[in-house]
Design a protein around this nucleic acid. Structure first.
Lengths: 245, 245
DNA sequence: ACCTGAACACCGTTCAAGT
DNA sequence: ACCTGAACACCGTTCAAGT
């Protein structure tokens, strides 16, 4: 396997510190430090917390210095996404040696889902720009390679991979939406929140909302990861059928 | 079928106009006018164009007046989503009288996809708050009702509907991402843009990226709607299998 | 009941200047 | 080559006051 496009060389970040002689050194960053701190901000406090001012403060420098590394906030997020995808890719590579290609696809899909579920902001930026996200492209390639072992046309393979990616990212982003304030602040648990929502659904007219009533208990006790897996199995079953069983 | 929760009464909006006697009447809005203009802004210039200031200007009033109708921008977008879902729901209801429940699911899914493809912002707000989005809930119910006619457990039905919604919204939101500036400004066409991207993919090492090379022509000429349909068919095929064929 | 004006506390981005 | 300070042109939201 070829190496991914090389990342710019990086040196460890130095927080602005005073020298022995008491003079003050200018803050000095590096692409690596910028992305690491950006991801830390994202992980600690969500997408809203990543501002150039907050990031500059963490790096111990001025706001404008970040623009030496990225041209815009969009690029910052694209690169941050690529940064965390390195680990996702490494995980996926480990799990991909399956005899059955469909098992391989499942393994990669689940790995990616877990990553996006952990980092909801990742969903919105995944594969948006393959030039800035070589690791995203490699993950796509790995998933696609599995389909080469199935009896399908190129078009079917393209559609299958697109479907899996679309499902994983879409579902994960949806599930990863910022929980309501009450849950975030620990006033109520996720279970209580779901129960409250379910209560509302139960109060709907049963004749008009037979389906909602039918599944309300499932909804109230559902597990996101299990729900994702069940949907993924439908796609994979359809694919296996298409490939001739 | 029961009516959806009633919308607040609305009167036509009046742009601030001068009276015969020359005095100035205060601007007067209505929830209906606020949502209509918000959607117009969204449709004309994308999510970035919807600001309280721009909306107030269109309504002919001050910024703060909008806060009498909605408590936050989040609520404004949730309600705007519900507003356009009224039409989507009406479309879906017309198409749902199928003998085969899977055909019914397909019809609703395609209708929703078309709506989100037209209005990318809709993807991010669909079904986020069923209290503010009764039409979203009704669409969910309609889709779910189809599964009641399939031989499945409640849990399987819940998972199936979640999978379809997740796939539709995820795929449509992804496809509906703001096209790059060059395309938006008409410098190049979508085809040229895809071709340029494909060119880049072709320049990758063939041994490391066999899949990308395998599908690059499909990618260069693909149609989003067709790609969506193909993925949807995989889910529906898996579901039909699960329901016993 | 509904709207206004002005302020508050933020944003991303730019740029001339520094080292 | 890389960083700083200060400014610019915005944001969403609040609030006392008006009608």
């Amino acid at each position: 396997m070829a190496p991914p496009p090389a990342a710019p060389a990086s040196r460890p970040s130095r927080r602005s510190a005073s020298r022995p002689d008491g003079t003050r050194r200018r803050a000095s960053h590096s692409m690596e430090a910028v992305l690491t701190e950006a991801v830390a901000l994202l992980d600690e406090a969500g997408e809203g917390a990543l501002t150039f001012r907050a990031l500059a403060a963490r790096l111990g420098g001025g706001v404008a210095s970040i623009y030496w590394y990225v041209a815009s906030k969009e690029e910052l997020l694209d690169r941050a996404a690529n940064h965390v995808l390195a680990d996702v890719l490494a995980d996926a590579e480990l799990q991909v040696e399956r005899e059955d290609p469909i098992d391989g696809m499942r393994a990669i899909a689940v790995t990616l889902f877990d990553a996006v579920a952990d980092r909801p902001w990742l969903g919105a930026y995944f594969m948006r720009d393959t030039e800035l996200q070589p690791h995203g492209l490699q993950l796509y390639e790995r998933l696609g390679q599995q389909t080469l072992r199935l009896d399908l046309t190129p078009r079917q393979r393209f559609h299958a991979v697109s479907a899996v990616i679309g499902f994983v990212v879409g579902t994960a982003a949806d599930m990863g939406q910022e929980p309501p304030r009450e849950v975030l602040e620990g006033e109520i648990t996720r279970e209580e929140y779901l129960a409250r929502w379910a209560e509302e659904w139960r109060s709907l007219d049963a004749d008009s909302y037979p389906y909602v009533h039918h599944i309300v208990d499932e909804f109230a006790t559902h597990d996101d990861a299990e729900q994702f897996r069940a949907g993924l199995e439908l796609i994979l079953a359809g694919l296996r059928l298409q490939a001739g069983g």
